[in-house]
């Protein structure tokens, strides 16, 4: 019986210590959570990603449509370069390497269908936009950044071409550390909402190879 009691007490204290340990861990997480970030620099810094993978869901709210256009996909970031892959409802792949946008295209060859990347010449500096959204690299030469609240920064484009397309860009941190929210308001007040969920902070060899344009 004593042995049973001793075992019971041991288990109790063991559980108690685990609970304490979890509490301590929660406190540690709280210390780096966005709620503790007090200025825009810290929010901006928290957005910066050098490498990683995230899934995304995107909703485009057009003022002339009753229902939003939804899409989902995966974002991969490697050394400041971005791979933006839409999986549903249609598949498409966009690579932004050194501020140059490349779109994957399928071409028919004598051996079947081959996938190649075509350089995309944009007229709305979307590479600047995509880079900012997905890597968190906010170039203050191109954006006016302002602190909105403890979770969010609001960005306005300085570039005239981009400013004619985008009114504001809002980057927000979530209660959950791996989630970020992006809201883009274009010149016609159409709103695009993107939720990013980080799934990995590292890339496999195959992932890195995807950034190589043949």
């Amino acid at each position: 019986m004593n042995r049973f009691l001793i075992a019971l007490i041991t288990i109790y204290f063991s559980c108690l210590s685990n609970v304490f340990a979890q509490d301590v861990a929660v406190v540690d997480t709280e210390q780096v959570k966005p709620s503790s970030v007090q200025n825009k620099t810290k929010v901006i810094d928290a957005f910066k990603t050098e490498q990683g993978i995230a899934s995304f869901t995107q909703e485009k709210h057009f003022s002339f449509l009753s229902t939003p256009i939804k899409s989902t996909g995966v974002i991969k970031i490697n050394q400041g370069n971005v791979l933006w892959q839409v999986n549903t409802p249609v598949f498409s792949k966009l690579l932004i390497i050194d501020n140059q946008v490349w779109q994957q295209a399928q071409i028919k060859t004598q051996y079947g269908i081959d996938e190649i990347y075509n350089k995309v010449a944009t007229h709305a500096s979307i590479e600047t936009l995509i880079n900012t959204i997905f890597t968190g690299n906010i170039d203050e030469e191109q954006w006016d950044a302002s602190y909105k609240n403890e979770h969010c920064v609001a960005l306005k484009p300085k570039d005239t071409v981009l400013s004619k397309a985008i009114l504001t860009l809002e980057l927000c941190l979530d209660e959950i550390a791996t989630i970020r929210h992006v809201e883009i308001t274009d010149a016609q007040k159409n709103i695009t909402k993107i939720q990013l969920t980080q799934t990995s902070t590292t890339l496999s060899e195959n992932d890195v190879n995807e950034f190589i344009i043949q």
Binding site: F62, I69, V86, S92, A124, L162, I166, I184, D186, I194
Partner: peptide, 9 residues
């Protein structure tokens, strides 16, 4: 679906 472009609109 293009981010930040208003061509469609």
């Amino acid at each position: 679906n293009q981010i930040g472009d208003q061509l469609v609109a």
